[in-house]
């Protein structure tokens, strides 16, 4: 009788703990790919994924203000720089997981395992097929050449993707050269920076400029849009990976970390392992056209079309460390 009772209690407890299994995610990513992945994770492990979406900077601020009482288990961002910042603020937990170190290449994770990359985005040159030949293009540095006067469009330097690109240029060429570069590129712009990366693609398609600096997946989104006008824009453009004969194309990762305050560390680590798993990596490229961590072996149709590329080997933490200086250089160059 007692045994039976005991058994029931155990069952009840296990049911409750099963129901209670959940992780709380603060995320800057607002893509369909994530919705699919989170649902798949819940289906597989029975762990609910609760989400607050917002800008990474504000989420980090919130995390800091909540301190050890924060309900968050995971911080997800669209660049490495913010993760570096959160780490420096002491908000992230070092994670030791063999699966993670196996899944995530060394240069795409924190040296002390505070954060891990999930997907790769390359910042490339999109050019008008009908006006520009691929042979005319070479490096980011070359965009400063006066031959491109009035031919370049790029979004505002408020954007983190431009800030990270600048951070990598500071690392490579030094702050003074980076400033000269920004001044010259600013002079070469066909118009004042405005709009998002898609708008830059549109501007090239409509003849405002010949080149745009954009992230690859934006062109993927345009090419697969439900809007005919978007698809026509994508038709007119090609992608060029700069600096292939040198350090390689600038990349960044969208990444994630377990928070120091996490009360569900085991589940949170499982979540990261799940997202970096080869089978699930596919979803980043299928639903959002981002590159998987193993970017040169992506099976996505559009990635195969764009071809393999060599990526800049820079330690991604440097992008975060140079971010503030990058913004100042943009200011000095008058790049709004």
């Amino acid at each position: 009788m007692f045994k039976k009772y005991f058994k029931n209690v155990i069952m009840l407890v296990s049911i409750i703990s099963y129901l209670a299994a959940e992780i709380n995610v603060y995320t800057h990513r607002h893509y369909d790919s994530d919705k699919i992945l989170f649902k798949k994770f819940t289906d597989m492990y029975g762990i609910e994924v609760n989400v607050i979406k917002g800008s990474a900077d504000q989420l980090i601020q919130r995390l800091q203000s909540e301190g050890k009482n924060s309900p968050a288990d995971i911080l997800l961002t669209v660049d490495a720089g913010r993760l570096v910042r959160a780490k420096n603020m002491g908000l992230l937990e070092a994670v030791s997981s063999k699966t993670l170190t196996k899944n995530v290449p060394e240069k795409m994770r924190d040296s002390e395992n505070h954060w891990f990359g999930l997907s790769v985005r390359a910042r490339v040159i999109a050019y008008a097929k009908d006006r520009i030949k691929e042979s005319q293009l070479s490096t980011y540095e070359d965009l400063a050449d006066p031959k491109w006067r009035g031919k370049i469009v790029v979004r505002s330097s408020n954007n983190i993707y431009n800030q990270s690109l600048m951070a990598s240029l500071i690392n490579e060429n030094g702050a003074d050269n980076a400033l000269e570069w920004a001044k010259s590129v600013r002079k070469n712009m066909a118009r004042k920076p405005r709009g998002n990366d898609r708008d830059q693609a549109r501007a090239v398609a409509s003849g405002v400029a010949d080149l745009a600096i954009i992230n690859t997946y934006y062109l993927g989104l345009l090419a697969n849009s439900s809007d005919k006008a978007d698809r026509e824009v994508a038709e007119k453009l090609n992608i060029f990976f700069p600096n292939q004969n040198g350090r390689g194309t600038h990349i960044n990762v969208s990444g994630a970390a377990v928070t120091k305050s996490s009360k569900n560390k085991k589940e949170a680590i499982k979540f990261l392992e799940f997202l970096t798993d080869k089978k699930n990596q596919r979803i980043f490229s299928e639903a959002n056209y981002e590159y998987p961590l193993d970017y040169n072996n992506s099976k996505s149709k559009i990635h195969l079309k764009w071809g393999r590329f060599k990526a800049d080997n820079i330690d991604l933490s440097i992008l975060g460390e140079n971010n503030s200086e990058a913004v100042k250089i943009f200011d000095l160059a008058g790049w709004e």
Binding site: N158, P193, V327, E336
Partner: peptide
Amino acid sequence: GVSTLTIGIFRSWFGMY
């Protein structure tokens, strides 16, 4: 692409930390 004070606020907060 109009750089108002509000843009400046976000830029110094998020861009320059």
